[in-house]
Simulated scan of single mutants.
Amino acid sequence: MSNALLIICALLLDAAMGEPRWLWNRMPHPAVLMGKLVGALDHRFNTGNQRQAKGLACVLILLITGAILGAMLSALGPVVEILVAAVLLAQRSLVQHVSIVGDGLRISVREGRRMVARIVGRDTAAMDDSQIARAAIESAAENLSDGVIAPAFWFLIAGLPGLVIYKLINTADSMIGYRTPRHEEFGWAAARLDDLLNLIPARLTALLITLPAGCLDITGIRSDAGLHRSPNAGWPEAALSRVLGIALSGPRAYEGEMRDFPWVNAEGRRALTPVDIDASIVMLWKAWGAFLALCALIVLL
């Protein structure tokens, strides 16, 4: 079976099943195991001098581990490939996590804050309705790219080894890829490689968001993406903001410190509601469907 056909099956399985709690209550999720591996490397090697070189060596360990593990699992046959790929995709769980923010916000602002705190790292205690909805929609856009489209893209390119490598590097970036005194040097290689691996998928995600909506403001999307603090996350955010006609990003607080980030699609509507969260979820599925259609076209060709 071709990689395109395998990933179609995995995407459909993930959309139908999501994250079966009965299974992950009995055994650790692969993402948890990846996090433990990165944490162990961080604990063991992020000490003393030459931390940048040690961080690069750890990235090489992750690359080799991902390639070997992916190849071993692939050798077990297409059924295993589909199952593993479905587990490492996150479309259904992303939709569920974003949906509960809208459901919580419909109950009360307090409940909306509680729900959005589960999916974002910014301060949530003082958020109003619009800030809660905006945070959920931004999370939807970013995680569509690095939780669905990027891993599926790398499966298309390099099969299960490509997907496992991507997830390991993305996990490493989320844990050690920060400009903090502890991780600025050690996590540099992981952060830069994650940027590189997401370079094409982030732009592809923006295209998949805009095409179904017939909103092809490529110039505006490129301009706003350049304002974002991330070289890649700005692309899906800018695309989704234009499709929905809303402003995203903007000022927000981290650890009690207000940061004046620029607005993405600054001319868009800033007063947001749970209805806008619902609209973003519709676009998540449309973009997912567009990627599925792209894979089907590859199979046919």
Rank of each mutant, 00 (worst) to 15 (best):
V109G: 03
C295Y: 04
G245W: 13
L83G: 11
A86M: 01
L94F: 08
A67M: 10
D194T: 09
R269E: 13
P274I: 01
R229K: 13
E138D: 05
H228F: 15
A10P: 06
V109D: 04
L297D: 11
V98G: 00
L272W: 09
A133S: 09
F186W: 14
I165R: 08
L69W: 10
V84A: 14
I200S: 04
L37T: 12
I107S: 09
H228T: 08
M34H: 05
L197G: 01
I298T: 14
D103K: 04
L163D: 05
A266T: 12
L6E: 06
P231V: 14
L94A: 01
N49L: 15
A57T: 12
G147W: 00
L160R: 03
M127C: 04
P274A: 14
A279P: 09
L208A: 07
R110S: 03
P231L: 15
G162L: 02
I157T: 13
C58G: 12
L227D: 04
L62D: 05
F186C: 10
E185D: 15
S99L: 09
Y166K: 14
I119M: 06
S174G: 08
I218H: 12
A172W: 15
G177Q: 05
F153N: 06
G214K: 09
V116W: 01
L13P: 02
L168A: 07
Q131C: 12
V95D: 06
L94I: 07
V98F: 00
T180C: 13
L196T: 13
I137T: 03
R259P: 04
G245L: 11
G147C: 00
A266S: 09
L144P: 04
R270W: 01
L204I: 03
D14P: 11
R92F: 04
A141P: 00
R110D: 00
I209V: 09
S139F: 07
I119F: 06
W22K: 14
K54L: 12
L204W: 01
P251L: 14
A189P: 01
P181I: 11
G289M: 14
D129G: 03
R26Q: 08
P28D: 10
I132V: 11
E142S: 07
L144E: 02
L204K: 00
L60E: 13
G77S: 14
L196A: 15
P28T: 05
W154I: 06
T124F: 05
I7C: 09
S145F: 01
I132Y: 00
Q131L: 09
S230D: 08
I169W: 02
S74K: 12
L60R: 10
Q91M: 14
P181A: 12
E257C: 11
A31I: 04
D217M: 01
G104W: 00
K54M: 07
C9P: 13
P251A: 13
F45R: 10
M17Q: 15
V80Y: 05
W285F: 14
M283Y: 13
V38Y: 07
R113S: 00
E184A: 14
A125S: 10
G121M: 07
L193I: 12
P78L: 06
W263C: 10
N232L: 04
L216Q: 09
S280I: 03
F261M: 08
R259G: 10
G245Y: 15
E81R: 13
K54D: 03
L211T: 11
